[in-house]
Amino acid sequence: MSERPAVSLSRVSRHFGLTRAMDEVDLEIAEGEFFAMLGPSGSGKTTCLRVIAGFEQPTSGEVRIFGENATGVPPYRRNVNTVFQDYALFPHMNVADNVAYSLMLRKVPKAERARQAEEALEMVRLPGYGARRPAELSGGQRQRVALARAIINRPKVLLLDEPLGALDLKLRENMQEELKSLQRRLGITFVFVTHDQSEALSMADRIAVFNAGKVIQVGAPEEVYRRPASPFVADFVGSSNILPPDFVEAVAGEKRWASLRPEQVRVTEPGDANPRLVGRVTAQSYLGATTRFAVALDGIALHAIVPAGSFQPADDGRVAIAFDRSALHFMDGPA
């Protein structure tokens, strides 16, 4: 991590009455990073974004942006811009005026404003749309306008609140790639909030996983996926199997929580396997290239993903499951 992180939060809390939306959050986001804040709704990730933007002031703790203390600084004096979840385009202005809003506030001459607005629109691949009204645009186009408006000033940090949440699947995939390439071209630090783990895994350089107002784990996507810090992370990022300590002790000799990726579980005929690993298939779903089995065994439910057609359980549904001990990832308590 560089000497001076783009954004740093130290012991930041934000309480709403008795609700602790953020509880002693420590976070460092490096310059030029594509950073994801991932978590279920109500986990504090959006509050965290709003604290960085300046819409919320922390109840306690300190926010620094490029080393400067930003605690108490209003949003209009921060070199940080936001792409809102509902895009928040001004309905009474056309696209060009929306994009050039910040330039208008700074009294940039009209011709220069128009030139820069068009340049920003080209950046998001909407050249020539300046004269239209936001109401005339599709959802995807509105989002691009919101992006153009937020990057026209080349902020040091760009915040994105659920940037792909309102788009349909196809558009979402295109936009993922486009956001990545835009970030590389601009070299701006991007911080985005999402509840979609696949989005976070595929786009981010690093991910912070939020739960109940706390940051549970920060790391590269692969690290978070392969070595979840807690059963919550294992469950939330990629729906791992979570094995309770008793079960783990019986099969691996260590009384600790462990996670197990469904694709690392093998399903076979119930031969002379360890009786604790024999169960019954309760559901089976065909996913194209793979088949997903839900197996009930010894009081826990286990998911397995196997290549399609590689195994078909007998009529009574009895199967044995197997996995390598090295596939188990041990972790601390259930938080």
Partner: peptide, 15 residues
């Protein structure tokens, strides 16, 4: 009027 319009304006530098 969506509340985020006001926030968007402040975010873009308007007091």
């Amino acid at each position: 009027l969506s509340g985020s319009l006001v926030e968007a304006s402040m975010d873009l530098g308007a007091d």
